[in-house]
Amino acid sequence: MLDSSSSSPRQGSFYDPEFICEQLIPEDSFYRQFKEKVGRLITDRMFESMYCTDNGRPPISPALLAKATVLRFHRNLSDREMERACAYDIEINFALGLLLDARPFDHSSLGDFRKRLLEHAQEKAVFDKLLSKLVKVGLIGRN
Rank of each mutant, 00 (worst) to 15 (best):
L2I: 13
D3V: 00
R10M: 07
R10V: 15
G12W: 06
S13E: 11
F14G: 07
D16I: 03
P17I: 07
E18Y: 05
C21G: 15
C21H: 04
E22P: 00
Q23H: 09
L24F: 12
L24N: 02
E27F: 07
E27G: 00
F34W: 08
K35W: 03
E36L: 11
E36Q: 13
G39I: 08
I42H: 04
I42N: 03
M46E: 11
M46D: 13
M46C: 05
M46N: 06
F47I: 05
S49A: 11
S49M: 07
S49N: 13
S49H: 12
T53S: 13
T53C: 00
D54T: 13
N55G: 00
R57K: 15
P59H: 10
P59T: 11
S61A: 11
P62M: 03
A63C: 08
A63W: 03
L65H: 10
A68P: 06
T69W: 02
T69D: 11
V70R: 00
R72H: 06
R72Y: 06
H74C: 02
R75E: 15
N76V: 03
N76I: 04
L77S: 08
L77H: 14
R80E: 15
R80I: 12
M82T: 14
E83I: 03
A87P: 00
Y88I: 12
D89C: 01
I90V: 15
I90M: 14
A95E: 07
L96E: 03
L96H: 03
P104S: 05
F105N: 03
F105R: 01
D106M: 00
S108W: 02
L110P: 05
L110S: 10
D112G: 00
F113Q: 09
F113L: 04
K115S: 14
H120L: 01
A121L: 04
E123T: 01
E123H: 02
K124M: 09
V126C: 08
V126N: 01
D128P: 00
L131N: 14
L131H: 14
S132H: 12
K136M: 09
G138V: 09
G138L: 06
L139N: 12
L139W: 09
I140K: 05
I140L: 10
G141L: 05
G141F: 01
R142W: 07
R142C: 11
